[in-house]
């Protein structure tokens, strides 16, 4: 589904991604771990099409087509979704209206008509119940004044509404309390299928206890320096990154 080939990206001439290779197939869950500042969020943003980053080398293929030149919305229409590490506050736009606009614009791009209002309401009701989101939230301005955990839960609500093929969850677990973590994880598990894929960026094992990864990658100074199975995450949790650093420097 996603194939990243020797990807280099920089911001203001500062190289951040320095040759990433990654292949993700439908039905798989990949975890990306790595120390602060290693480039995990940058990778997520580059996949989603953030224009601040310049791809200087390499390519990103989504379903065998390069998406390097596509606008963020075009990638979204193809089925790429990024759950932000720091979701942006958008004063004056309610969660519901934002969702309606996002869904109908996506449908428009796929040559479908607007989703009928009652169907939309039903879907909003189902997905917000699944994530135990209070109805009050839906009429509030998007992310404005939301607590850290509320923002993250709202991101997963949007994921559930948009049903993308590839979901990138950037530190969705940070800020969530124990109950919320369980709710969000079970939400993601319900959405997961053999036709879609998930990338989980995280620092901790706890989310991976609920959403079990098929592969774990370690990112270090803009490269993926180690990949393994789910046990790699446990090893990192136990030992930290020093041994990785030593391996890389050796």
């Amino acid at each position: 589904m996603l194939k990243i080939i020797d990807l280099h990206a920089s911001v203001e001439d500062k190289a951040i991604l320095k040759g990433i290779n990654l292949e993700i197939n439908a039905g798989e869950v990949h975890a990306i771990m790595g120390p602060n500042g290693s480039g995990k969020s940058t990778l997520a943003s580059v996949i989603a099409g953030k224009e601040d980053y310049e791809v200087t080398q390499g390519d990103i293929l989504f379903e065998d087509e390069s998406i390097n030149e596509l606008a963020p919305e075009e990638r979204a229409h193809k089925g790429v979704f990024l759950s932000f590490q720091y979701p942006t506050e958008i004063p004056g736009v309610s969660v519901t209206n934002f969702m309606k606009t996002a869904i109908n614009e996506t449908r428009k791009a796929r040559k479908l008509g607007d989703m009928p209002a009652n169907e939309m309401l039903k879907m909003i009701r189902e997905k917000s119940e699944m994530l135990e989101i209070d109805r009050k939230f839906l009429s509030r301005s998007l992310n404005e004044g939301f607590s850290g955990g509320e923002k993250k839960r709202n991101e997963i609500f949007q994921l559930a509404m948009l049903e993308p093929k590839l979901a990138i969850l950037d530190e969705t677990d940070s800020g969530l309390d124990i109950d919320a973590l369980r709710i969000v994880a079970s939400g993601v598990n319900k959405i997961k299928s053999k036709d879609n894929a998930v990338i989980i960026i995280t620092h901790y094992q706890r989310l991976l206890d609920y959403i079990i990864p098929d592969f774990v990658h370690v990112m270090f100074e803009g490269r993926i320096v180690k990949s393994g199975g789910k046990e790699l995450a446990l090893e990192l949790e136990e030992k930290g990154y020093d041994w990785i650093r030593e391996e890389v420097n050796a």
């Binding site: 989603a48 099409g49 953030k50 224009e51 606008a71 963020p72 919305e73 990638r75 979204a76 229409h77 979704f81 990024l82 932000f84 979701p87 942006t88 506050e89 958008i90 004063p91 004056g92 736009v93 934002f98 606009t101 996002a102 869904i103 614009e105 996506t106 791009a109 301005s141 949007q158 948009l162």
Partner: peptide
């Protein structure tokens, strides 16, 4: 950053801009 957020959810640039201006 609000523009990128909205576009990454499938709202095209022009519509995202309009929504922000309206808000």
């Amino acid at each position: 950053s609000a523009m990128f957020y909205m576009r990454s959810r499938g709202i095209p640039e022009k519509e995202a801009k309009a929504l922000l201006m309206y808000a």
